[in-house]
């Protein structure tokens, strides 16, 4: 039996709260980089098959940029930060101080800008998460891909060494009304991490 089969509504609410606190901090970091208000949706948490995780973001063939991190420490997890193609290009323009609409395809410079952005936002996410749970997280070097959503998400799991076809995901969507940006944060605690995270919040799995 997978540990996530013991999750109840209270546990899921606690995990959503982690998503809320982590993504809230990341959204604040992004807002201060861009000088624009960034909003986020209420996080969702649940155990989903890969195909449904894809459906949370869009269609399998939609082009997306994805920065992937493995997080080590007492609660090993994965973090994926995804951006739609138009959002990725717009963010490259804004962060490089170019007029909007300049970037029309992804080059090496653009890939590094997005990887670095992922680095900063993931750092903010993890800091808030760590402080809230009193756990220590160490993210690995980021990995980057820009391609079809289906190919990118499945490979983020497989190439990151996560081999189940279901995962416990905590998902937050962030967006802005002033500038057209839409992105997703996924936190995927590995099996042994789940109990540790809940325990740190005073909850037990059994």
């Amino acid at each position: 039996m997978e540990p996530w089969e013991k999750l109840n509504a209270l546990h899921l609410d606690a995990l959503k709260e982690i998503g809320n606190i982590g993504a809230g901090n990341a959204a604040t970091a992004l807002a201060s980089m861009l000088g624009s208000r960034i909003q986020m949706t209420v996080p969702r948490a649940g155990v989903l098959p890969l195909q449904e995780i894809t459906a949370l973001v869009g269609y399998e063939e939609d082009p997306v940029a994805c920065v992937e991190f493995s997080v080590s420490g007492p609660a090993p997890s994965k973090i994926f930060f995804l951006l739609s193609e138009p959002s990725a290009y717009l963010l490259i323009d804004l962060l490089l101080g170019k007029p909007q609409g300049t970037t029309r395809e992804l080059d090496e410079m653009g890939s590094s800008v997005l990887t670095e952005l992922g680095n900063i936002l993931t750092g903010s996410f993890l800091n808030a998460f760590a402080e809230f749970c009193r756990l220590e997280f160490k993210p690995t070097v980021p990995a980057f891909a820009f391609d079809m959503l289906g190919a990118v998400l499945s490979s983020a799991f497989l190439e990151g060494g996560y081999f189940s076809d279901r995962a416990l995901v905590i998902e937050t969507k962030f967006y802005s009304e002033a500038i057209t940006i839409s992105g997703h944060f996924f936190l995927i605690p590995e099996n042994e991490a789940l109990g540790k995270i809940l325990q740190s919040l005073g909850l037990q799995l059994d």
Binding site: V141, A143, A151, S155, A156, L158, E159
Partner: peptide, 16 residues
């Protein structure tokens, strides 16, 4: 394919 590129060798070592 190998979709992700990274400075971390571990990812490409998996070669899934």
């Amino acid at each position: 394919a190998q979709m992700f590129t990274s400075g971390d060798r571990h990812l490409s070592l998996l070669n899934i």
